[in-house]
């Protein structure tokens, strides 16, 4: 039997088993841990399919940060109540899921014959985009509108979480070992985040992955008690959060008024503008994600 086929089959079975176990386990904490493992396996699957960008994003955001967010939410929530969904809800969700599955199969099936027209289209216009990595070219040039909206979604999520006024986590006094370890990890996260950002123009990497790695460094430092509370009413914090969307919108609007159109970069300036947007977006994503996990929700009126 082919060794690669064996590995892939084991990976697929493990993914399905982990998904089922995550949904059907009794305890919330077990479900969260299984979900994190599921994210890591999913990252491995993306890497196996050759989608390294997605694998990096899934490992950093899907498994890492969402796992931390779920654990933080679990720590803030009270004792769980065992609830069972009524049969009508179950039937409705089964119906909805099967409809979605049909839609999904219809969307994915053409890809099986390698007949998708998009990759060739992207590669033929790659020279005009200003970057040499096709994924970055799609994200920040051909479909920049989607990336702008993703940043807006992240901003809305942060504002929504702030409206909820969730109580602060009671952080216990950090052990010296954790402090020493976070002192070692934080510079590493800056180096790796910077490397991912720099790499994004010509190889897998980019703003979201870099931002997630930077946020992880900040969160570890905050949990170890080495960073002061991340306060929303400190204006540089808000400026960092809003910077990504603001710069993106400014460039888009400037292109609309002065140049050829909304989010259409002038020829020759593509690389500079994309780099600027990537840097601002990385800072914005890093600060937003850190605030989502360890932000101080208390309003301190001046």
């Amino acid at each position: 039997m082919n060794a690669e086929l064996l590995f892939d089959a084991a990976l697929i079975l493990l993914l399905l088993a982990l998904a089922a176990a995550t949904l059907h386990t009794r305890k919330l904490y077990t479900a969260i841990v299984l979900f994190i493992v599921f994210g890591l396996m999913l990252a491995l699957t993306w890497a196996r399919l050759g989608a390294v960008d997605l694998a990096l994003a899934e490992a950093a955001i899907g498994a890492g940060l969402i796992g931390v967010m779920l654990l933080a939410a679990f720590g803030r929530s009270g004792p769980e109540a065992a609830t069972r969904a009524p049969p009508a809800v179950l039937a409705a969700s089964v119906l909805l899921c099967s409809l979605l599955l049909v839609l999904f199969a219809q969307g994915v099936w053409p890809l099986a014959n390698n007949s998708a027209p998009v990759p060739e289209l992207v590669n033929s216009h790659l020279a005009a985009s200003g970057v040499s990595h096709p994924v970055t070219a799609v994200l920040l040039n051909f479909r920049a509108w989607d990336t702008l909206l993703e940043l807006v979604v992240l901003l809305l999520a942060l504002l929504g979480v702030r409206q909820l006024h969730s109580p602060n986590m009671n952080l216990p006094a950090a052990w010296p070992l954790l402090q020493a370890w976070s002192r070692l990890l934080a510079p590493l996260s800056i180096v790796i985040g910077g490397y991912l950002l720099w790499r994004g123009s010509h190889a897998p990497g980019g703003a979201f992955q870099a931002g997630a790695v930077l946020a992880a460094g900040a969160i570890v430092l905050r949990l170890a008690g080495l960073l002061p509370p991340l306060r929303w009413n400190w204006w540089p914090m808000r400026a960092c959060v809003l910077g990504g969307v603001a710069l993106f919108m400014t460039i888009a609007a400037a292109g609309y008024w002065l140049g050829s159109g909304w989010l259409d970069y002038p020829p020759g300036l593509g690389k500079t503008l994309i780099t600027l947007i990537e840097i601002a977006a990385t800072v914005s994503i890093a600060v937003s994600l850190s605030l989502l996990v360890v932000g101080d929700t208390r309003e301190i009126t001046p």
């Binding site: 052990w175 070992l177 954790l178 370890w181 070692l184 590493l188």
Partner: peptide, 16 residues
């Protein structure tokens, strides 16, 4: 090296 350091630290933290 990185996995070894993080594994040793995580082990100490969990045991503690």
């Amino acid at each position: 090296l990185l996995v070894m350091a993080s594994g040793a630290t995580a082990c100490q933290l969990l045991a503690r």
